[in-house]
Write a protein that binds this DNA or RNA. Structure first.
Lengths: 223, 223
DNA sequence: GACTCTCGGATCGTATACGATCCATCGAAA
DNA sequence: TTTCGATGGATCGTATACGATCCGAGAGTC
């Protein structure tokens, strides 16, 4: 008599899911006993799940106080997105000569779906964010480096959990992003763009998100 | 009446230290109850510690079977070093205009110490590895991006734990590495090397480690 | 001799129990 | 009124207990 998942594993997935979808928002307290009661397990597997989430930088745990969903201030958020730009740019470089026509087509389809949202109502941020993330993942999944893909997934998780993009992406940025995506797809299809150039452009595309969010508040000082 | 560290924390540090220094080698089993007895705690905090190490990719845990120190096959090792090359290259780019003369001097001193080992006995791999890691850390610590530094530290941990470098770095590689380090320091000091160029050279320096370890066994296929 | 089955020890998985710590609240003293 | 210290509830921290699972060893069968 064994369930497929250990309790600690299913608790881990539940909490993680709730953090990524915003059910547990940034800064929210995670009380072990309350979660245990809610998920109908004892506090022990909940503690294990929280430890994993702590190691993944999704929650912060303070001794004798408890766990909280991580919060990102502006600087931390920008540094994370900068990491994303770095990894995504390199992943695109690696994917350039490995990517299948099917994956390229899928990416194009996703970007077209994004474009359909560009003029639409601003209350569908959740769906836009999911499409955007999936567009990038469809491409970087072809980079053929397991750790690169894992790191990118993890970075996106942290960025999603912070709700910064979801709440502050300026509406006008979406149109530019979609155009940049198209340009990246063109570069890959052409097969004649030097790797350095493709990596540079992909990196810049992600860095543009930082500039867009900063707006005119602070001087841009990237690199 | 409180110790500075919770038991789970001190257990975590103990096990981690043993993995990084090779006391627990790759593939070695970590039996919870044995570790608990050894460190004089109950199995519960040991389990928490193992969960963290699992999330950090230092150990793998299999349900109802137990934990093992992670093993890296050649391909996995190369992919990790490739990540290291990517992050380290970018960190150097960011550090270029931030690095202090003191840090530069320290790096030079470390590299000189490395050179002193270049012709010496081959049985001091441990010390050479530590110096080499520290040389790079002294530079990338100036990159002013917290997550970049954390990721680099974590990558070095995993690479150290795999014992691949320690056991298979060809002796002749050290001399070349030391020369490349000098060249990187020169580039930073000159203050006139374009960021792209510095990043490219730093990245290549790390990739050279892969080529050196591969030897002539397999065709080199980077990027 | 090879295969299967059963059994038992090793090990993990989780619940429960209870002590330790923190912190918000409230009352007393300055 | 402000400050300080006491108090109690909320919450974490860890030990213990015991059931569940795995896996290897040995017996039994073909």
């Amino acid at each position: 008599m064994s369930s497929l998942l250990s309790k600690h594993e299913s608790v881990y997935r539940s909490i993680r899911e709730r953090i990524l979808t915003g059910v547990y928002g940034p800064g929210e307290r995670l009380v072990l006993s309350a979660i245990a009661r809610d998920l109908d397990v004892s506090p022990v597997p909940v503690r294990e799940a929280i430890r994993r989430l702590e190691a993944e930088n999704l929650v912060t745990f303070e001794r004798n106080v408890g766990a909280r969903v991580n919060t990102l201030d502006d600087e931390a958020w920008e540094q994370l997105v900068e990491m994303l730009a770095l990894l995504d740019g390199y992943a695109m470089r690696r994917a350039q000569c490995r990517i299948t026509p099917a994956a390229l087509g899928e990416a194009q389809r996703l970007n077209d779906a994004l474009r359909a949202h560009a003029g639409g109502p601003a209350d569908q941020h959740g769906e836009v964010m999911a499409l955007h993330r999936l567009f990038h993942r469809t491409l970087y999944a072809n980079s053929d480096n397991r750790y690169l893909v894992e790191s990118l997934d993890s970075l996106w998780d942290r960025i999603d959990a912070s709700r910064v993009l979801a709440s502050r992406w300026p509406a006008h940025r979406l149109a530019s992003a979609v155009d940049e995506h198209d340009e990246l797809l063109r570069m890959i299809r052409s097969g004649e763009v030097p790797p350095d150039e493709l990596e540079r452009c992909t990196r810049q595309h992600s860095l543009n998100a930082i500039i867009a969010i900063r707006g005119r508040k602070t001087p841009v000082r990237l690199q």
